[in-house]
Design a protein around this nucleic acid. Structure first.
Lengths: 154, 154
DNA sequence: TGTATAGATTATAATAGTTATAAAATAAAA
DNA sequence: TTTTATTTTATAACTATTATAATCTATACA
C-alpha cells in the first residue's frame, strides 16, 4: 500500500499538487476499503479516526482532485449520494457493477466486457469513447437462493 | 401522443392512481421533449407554461410515480441533477447514452448491445439481471470534426 | 343529490449533500 | 528568512430533493 501511495504522490507532484497528511489519510482509507463503495460522508467518518481534525469539505476536495487525476471514479447508483471507487492500477477501463435490488450489495466485475460494444459505438456512431459506466441492477446469487429457500418451505 | 397518454392513463388506473391535470401536463412535456434529458427543474418550468399553478414538489412526485411504473427512467450523468428519460413503448430494456465531454450533448442508442454481456453476467456471476445502465463518455462526431478543422487551419 | 372517503396538490418548511468564502496554517521557493 | 502559492479549517451558503399539514378534487355510495 505504501508504494501505491508513493506512486500517487508522484502523480500529484507532477501536476503541482501536494500530498498533505489529510490527503494521505483519505487515500489510506480508500485503499483499506478498496472493495467498498463509500460515500463522501462515510469516507469522512473513517478518515476522522486517523486525522480527527479533518473537515468534510477537505474530504470532498480531495476526492474531486483524485477524480480529476483518474485515481478514482465518482459513481452514482441512484440512491442520492455519490460514491467513490479507486481505479485499479494498470487497468485503464472503469470496471462494471452489479447492484442487488434486494440487499443493496454491490459486486465488481473487473473484466472488460465492453470491447465489442465500444467498437460498434465508435464505428457506427463515430463517437470517440473515453470512458464508460455500466451497472446492472438485479438480484444477486445469495438473494436468489434465499428466495428459493422460502418458496420450498411454503 | 393522445393515445400514448391514454395508455399511460390506463396503466395508472390499473394501479389505483389517477391521471390528474398536473400529471397529464407533465406527461405532455415529457412527450414533446422526448429526445431531451430534462431535469426536474427544467420539466417544472416547461409544465408551468401549461399549468401555471403547479408546484415543483408535484413534478417530483409525478416523476417518481412514473419511474415506479417504468414509464420513465431516472438517470444521472454525474452533473449533480437527476434527469428523466421516457421509456420507448414496446422496448423493455433501457437504452444507452453517449455523453459528449466537449459539448455536453447526449445521444441515445436504441438498439440493445448488451445481450451477450448480460448472458455472461447471468451465467458467470449467477446474477439475475433486471435492468442496466450504460453510458459512454467521450467525444461526439461534431466535436471531433471541429477539432480536426482547427488543426488543419493551424 | 348530497356526503364520505381516499387520493392528490399546494404552500411551506425541512433536510441532505455539496460547494464557496475568508482567515489561518503549511510547505516549498527564492 | 522572507516570500509565495497551496491547502486546510470553520463556517456559511447553496441546490436538489423530500416531508408536512392544510386544502382541494373526484369518485363511490347512501
Amino acid at each position: 500500500m505504501k508504494q501505491r501511495i508513493e506512486r500517487i504522490k508522484k502523480q500529484l507532484h507532477g501536476q503541482g499538487y501536494k500530498l498533505t497528511p489529510q490527503r494521505e489519510a483519505t487515500l489510506t482509507v480508500l485503499l483499506e476499503r478498496e472493495s467498498d463503495h463509500l460515500s463522501a460522508e462515510e469516507i469522512f467518518l473513517l478518515v476522522k479516526d486517523k486525522a480527527p481534525e479533518i473537515g468534510l469539505a477537505t474530504v470532498y476536495r480531495t476526492l474531486e482532485l483524485l477524480s480529476d487525476l483518474s485515481v478514482l471514479d465518482k459513481i452514482n447508483f441512484g440512491d442520492g449520494v455519490s460514491r467513490y471507487d479507486l481505479r485499479k492500477e494498470g487497468v485503464d477501463h472503469f470496471h462494471h457493477h452489479l447492484v442487488c435490488m434486494e440487499c443493496g450489495q454491490v459486486e465488481e466485475v473487473m473484466e472488460d466486457l465492453l470491447n465489442d460494444v465500444e467498437k460498434i459505438i465508435e464505428d457506427d456512431w463515430q463517437f470517440k469513447v473515453k470512458d464508460h459506466r455500466l451497472t446492472f441492477h438485479g438480484v444477486c446469487k445469495q438473494c436468489q437462493e434465499a428466495a428459493a429457500k422460502v418458496k420450498v418451505n411454503e
